Structures are given as structure tokens and as C-alpha cells.
Simulated scan of single mutants.
Amino acid sequence: MANIASQKKRILRAERERLENRRYTSTIKTYFRRLEVSAAGDDAAAADADHTQLVSLIDKAVKRGALHKNTGSRKKARAARVRAGQPS
């Protein structure tokens, strides 16, 4: 570990930020699996609700910096294909 106080603080802050980003990405994966299940089950209302939640979460992650803008767009496009019933 670093000897300089500001670097010690920076290391701790980077770890907190890493965990926050990881929470976003993990939750996005969970919601995506949920969307796949509801879309496969032919439950249109549930699929729409799951899709809305997923897109909202992706937008928040992009705004927060946990995901790159293009990655967020790619994930939203993939989610739209799943919701429409097309294979990804």
C-alpha cells in the first residue's frame, strides 16, 4: 500500500467506485436474464415492464460512468431484440 496519505485515500476511493460500477453491471445482467425469461414465456406485459426497468438502469449506469455510452446503446439494442422475440 502507498505511503502518501492522499494516495491511500485514492486507493480506498477507487475501490468504492469499482464496487459501485460492479453493482450496476451485475444488476444489468440480472435484469437482462429476467427479460429473457419473461420474453420466452410469452408474457408481453412482464417483458415490457422488465425491458423498461432494464433500459432505465442502463441509462443510469451510462450517466454515472459505470458503462461506456456505446456499451449502453449495444445492451439496449440487444434487449429490444430479445423483447421483440428475435434471437440475439
Rank of each mutant, 00 (worst) to 15 (best):
M1V: 08
A2R: 14
N3P: 03
N3F: 06
N3L: 05
I4K: 14
I4Y: 13
A5N: 06
S6K: 14
S6Q: 05
S6G: 01
Q7N: 07
K8I: 08
K9A: 14
R10D: 09
R10L: 13
I11P: 09
L12S: 09
R13A: 11
R13S: 15
A14F: 02
A14K: 06
A14Q: 07
A14E: 13
E15T: 12
R16V: 12
E17Q: 11
E17S: 08
R18F: 14
L19H: 11
N21Y: 09
N21E: 14
N21S: 04
R22T: 13
R23C: 13
R23H: 06
Y24I: 05
Y24K: 04
S26D: 14
T27L: 12
I28N: 05
K29I: 03
K29M: 11
T30M: 13
Y31G: 03
Y31C: 05
F32N: 01
R34V: 02
R34M: 12
R34N: 14
L35C: 12
L35N: 03
E36R: 11
V37H: 06
V37L: 12
S38I: 04
S38K: 07
A40H: 04
G41M: 09
D42C: 15
A44H: 06
A44G: 10
A45H: 04
A45K: 00
A46Y: 02
A46I: 04
D48S: 04
D48V: 10
A49G: 02
A49F: 00
A49M: 03
H51N: 05
H51F: 12
H51I: 03
T52F: 03
L54K: 00
V55P: 04
S56E: 07
L57K: 09
I58A: 00
I58E: 00
D59E: 08
K60I: 10
A61G: 07
V62Q: 07
K63P: 03
R64Y: 11
G65N: 04
H68D: 15
K69S: 15
K69E: 15
N70T: 05
T71I: 05
T71F: 01
G72W: 01
G72H: 01
S73K: 08
S73G: 15
K75T: 00
K75E: 01
K75H: 08
K75M: 13
A77C: 03
A77G: 04
R78T: 08
R78M: 11
A80P: 11
R81G: 08
R83N: 13
G85K: 00
G85Q: 03
P87T: 10
S88E: 07
